[in-house]
C-alpha cells in the first residue's frame, strides 16, 4: 500500500492514484484523526466502516468538497487543492443519492455534461444508457433506485475518468443490481491505469472485488492492507468459556460470549493455530472483522 511515489506532472506518472497523508478534520461531535492511506494505480480499494465512521468525510476531503485542518492529499501525483480543476477532469464520482434533479432525463444529462467535461464521450454515454436499459427520454424521478444508480455510473464513466470514487453507491440496491454494477467496475479496472476507491458498509461486495481494504472507525484507521492478507490473517475461534479463559488475549481482537460458548476474532491465525491446536476455527469474513474490531473499539471506550 505504501509504495514509493513517482511524480511526473506532465506525463501523469504516478504509482498511487490517491495518496492521503495524515489528514485531520475536527467537527463539534466528530473528528478524523491523522488518516493516511493510498489507492494504488490499477487497483480497487474498499473503504469500509460503520455509518458515521468517517468514510464520507474522508471522501469529501479527497474531493476537496470540505477543507481539512491538516494533512496532504495527492491525486495522480498532484495536490488535490492546487491542481483541483486539472485533477477533476479525470475523476468520476458516484454518490449514494442521485445528485441530478428528478425532472431531468438521461438526454438532458448528456447536454449538461458534454460541456462540463472536455473529454465527455457522447457515444460511450449512450452506449451505457442502452446497455443498462435506461429509457433515454424518461425522467429520472420515474426510474427505479437501481436504474438511477446505473445512470449515475453511466454518467461517471463517460468522460474517460481514470479514478472512480464511490460513496456508498451500492447501498440499498438489490443483489442482482449490485452484481451488475460490480461487473461494470470489473470492466473499468481492466484498464490498468484506472483505479477505484469504493466506500461501503456492504462488505460482501468488497470481498468480491477489492484488492485492498481500508477499515475506518470513529475517525481512525483501524486496519489497512491487501484484502487477501487481511482475510488470511484473521479467523473466528469457537470454544467453550473455560477454554477461552486460558487463551492468551494478545491473539484476540475481541470476543462475544453466549450461553453456548465464546466466539472470538484472532488477527494472527498462524501463531494461534501453532499454540492452540484442536480448536474450532472458521474463516472470517470482512463483516466479521469489521464487527469484532468495532466491538473492541467500543469496549475500550467503555473501559475508558
Amino acid at each position: 500500500m505504501n509504495s514509493k511515489m513517482e511524480i511526473d506532472m506532465d506525463n501523469y506518472k504516478y504509482e498511487n492514484a490517491i495518496e492521503i497523508k495524515e489528514i485531520s478534520k475536527k467537527y463539534k461531535d466528530f473528528s478524523l484523526n491523522n488518516i493516511s492511506f493510498n489507492v494504488p494505480k490499477g487497483s480497487i480499494v474498499g473503504f469500509i466502516g460503520q455509518n458515521g465512521a468517517g468514510k464520507t468525510t474522508t471522501i469529501k476531503s479527497v474531493l476537496n468538497i470540505i477543507k481539512t485542518d491538516s494533512g496532504r492529499i495527492n491525486i495522480f501525483g498532484m495536490d488535490n487543492v492546487k491542481d483541483e480543476k486539472k485533477i477533476k477532469e479525470d475523476i468520476a464520482v458516484v454518490f449514494d443519492e442521485m445528485p441530478f434533479q428528478e425532472e431531468f432525463t438521461p438526454n438532458n444529462l448528456n447536454k449538461i455534461m458534454k460541456s462540463i467535461y472536455d473529454s465527455w464521450d457522447e457515444v460511450v454515454y449512450k452506449g451505457y444508457v442502452e446497455r443498462f436499459g435506461i429509457p433515454y427520454n424518461k425522467k429520472i424521478g420515474e426510474l427505479s433506485k437501481g436504474m438511477k444508480m446505473k445512470l449515475q455510473i453511466a454518467t461517471a464513466l463517460s468522460h474517460n475518468a481514470r479514478l472512480l470514487i464511490m460513496d456508498e453507491a451500492t447501498g440499498g440496491l438489490d443483489p442482482v443490481v449490485r452484481s451488475e454494477i460490480l461487473d461494470i467496475f470489473f470492466d473499468f479496472i481492466q484498464d490498468e491505469s484506472n483505479s477505484i476507491l469504493m466506500s461501503s458498509h456492504i462488505t460482501s461486495d468488497l470481498e468480491k472485488i477489492a484488492d485492498y481494504i481500508v477499515f475506518i472507525d470513529r475517525g481512525n484507521i483501524l486496519l489497512s492492507g491487501y484484502k487477501d492478507d487481511i482475510l488470511s490473517e484473521h479467523a473466528i475461534i469457537k470454544c467453550a468459556k473455560d477454554e477461552f479463559v486460558n487463551i492468551d488475549k494478545e491473539y484476540i481482537v475481541s470476543s462475544r460470549q453466549s450461553e453456548f460458548g465464546v466466539e472470538a476474532l484472532t488477527d494472527d491465525i498462524s501463531k494461534f493455530e501453532d499454540k492452540y491446536k484442536g480448536m474450532v476455527i472458521d474463516r472470517a469474513t470482512l463483516e466479521d472483522i469489521m464487527v469484532y474490531y468495532v466491538k473492541r473499539n467500543t469496549d475500550n471506550i467503555k473501559k475508558g
Binding site: 469529501k60 474531493l63 476537496n64 468538497i65 480543476k85 486539472k86 477533476k88 477532469e89 475523476i91 464520482v93 454518490f95 443519492e97 442521485m98 445528485p99 441530478f100 434533479q101 462540463i116 467535461y117 472536455d118
Partner: peptide, 18 residues
C-alpha cells in the same frame, strides 16, 4: 437552496469548473 439540500452542490464540486 435546492442545489445545497440535494447532492447537486457536492456533485458540482467534483466538476472541473470553478
Amino acid at each position: 437552496v435546492t442545489d445545497f439540500n440535494g447532492k447537486w452542490m457536492e456533485m458540482q464540486y467534483t466538476f472541473p469548473v470553478e
